[in-house]
Design a protein around this nucleic acid. Structure first.
Lengths: 204, 204
DNA sequence: AAAACATGAATGAGCGTTCATTTATTCCGC
DNA sequence: GCGGAATAAATGAACGCTCATTCATGTTTT
């Protein structure tokens, strides 16, 4: 087995174990067993327990960023871009449920308690939304009075909270597609009564 | 010192310590020292470490619910209610910053890893939003096609993510009031270009 | 003087990390 | 291509430390 394979195997096993038990309840020996390596082998590839988590964040979020950026670059309408972002963020939840659970729960902590670690990848991900909002403002499609730091967080937070619901509860009354559509729709058109404004009704 | 005083003292000390170190990094002895009691005394008032956290959740969220419900009951316009909810949720962040940090970080974990514990108080809090949305729909102020489970999460998530930003970063370019206004405004009117729709422009 | 409350040192289980040892792979002279 | 030395990779038992929890003892209240 090649070196790189074992690195990957440990990361993937860590995702499985951490999603089930969380960082502090997960044992190194759990991860080792899941990866079918000896406890000590982990330390040939990672400095310590935290290092596994950080590497996991960087590598996996990195992949997601590349993927989402590609999808968005194919599109010109910022309103559509928001829909695409929403859809793919939520799709992640069912396609990579275990990873999603780890990111949901552990990312928040680590931002707070591993003070030295700035999660630049995560910031980069959320800033994809800022980019879209900014573009929409330039194109005169979105309101100019949006506070960029607030609006991006609001949109991302709406998605994030929705995916938390998805992960926690076993049954879902809506499809991913419906949820993504609804969220981007709420942002684009508001929740006010229809007739006054209609999302995507005018072509850009 | 009365019994109830010590219970409160331990809870308040736990909030301080947990906000600084997080549940797993916090020692019982840290909490005891902060509360100026002996380690063993903690166990006269709580069954174990988890019990402190759960009690903290229940009691503190309970207080918040009572407070917010009061404020909202004074209001009739669901649009104003959303603004009030947003404002007071965010105000909590600066008024009870340490509590906010604990809720932000630990609540998520505990929902996942303390399987037996259903955080009913938290659900009750988020459901205040559902209530408002429902009322708005009945009054024909909000769109009828809102998916209730999605819309409430989206609104709450937007607030929650914004408050996380508030807690993590030391400097804030906006006031709490601006942020709350902007978020409720985004939900009520959308982020589309103005002129087509205007929040709260028609009296209820 | 009994009951209730409080103390904090002692206990012991749990687990991240290390490292002496084993196993696999590569290298090289012939 | 073969034997076998050198290097690399992997192993997992043992170490050492960290706490959550307990409880024998002390203090305060009734």
């Amino acid at each position: 087995m090649r070196t790189s394979d074992k690195h990957q195997k440990i990361i993937q096993s860590a995702i499985k174990v951490l999603s089930r038990k969380g960082f502090f309840n997960a044992r190194i020996s759990d991860i080792a067993k899941e990866a079918q390596v000896a406890d000590g082998t982990i330390y040939l590839y990672f400095n310590n327990k935290y290092d596994i988590l950080i590497t996991l964040f960087e590598e996996e979020i990195g992949k997601i960023i590349v993927h989402v950026k590609q999808l968005i670059d194919d599109e010109n309408d910022p309103r559509k871009m928001l829909e695409i972002f929403a859809l793919h963020h939520l799709k992640l939840m069912e396609e990579k449920r275990e990873l999603a659970e780890v990111l949901q729960v552990e990312l928040r902590q680590s931002n707070k308690f591993m003070k030295e670690y700035r999660n630049t990848k995560f910031i980069e991900y959320v800033d994809i939304v800022s980019g879209i909002l900014h573009k929409g403002q330039e194109m005169e499609i979105f309101r100019k009075d949006l506070l960029p730091g607030i609006a991006k967080r609001a949109f991302f937070g709406a998605l994030d909270e929705t995916s938390r619901l998805w992960i926690l509860s076993p049954k879902h009354p809506y499809t991913i597609e419906e949820a993504a559509k609804q969220i981007s729709n709420i942002f684009l058109a508001g929740i006010g009564k229809p007739g006054v404004n209609k999302t995507l009704s005018k072509a850009s």
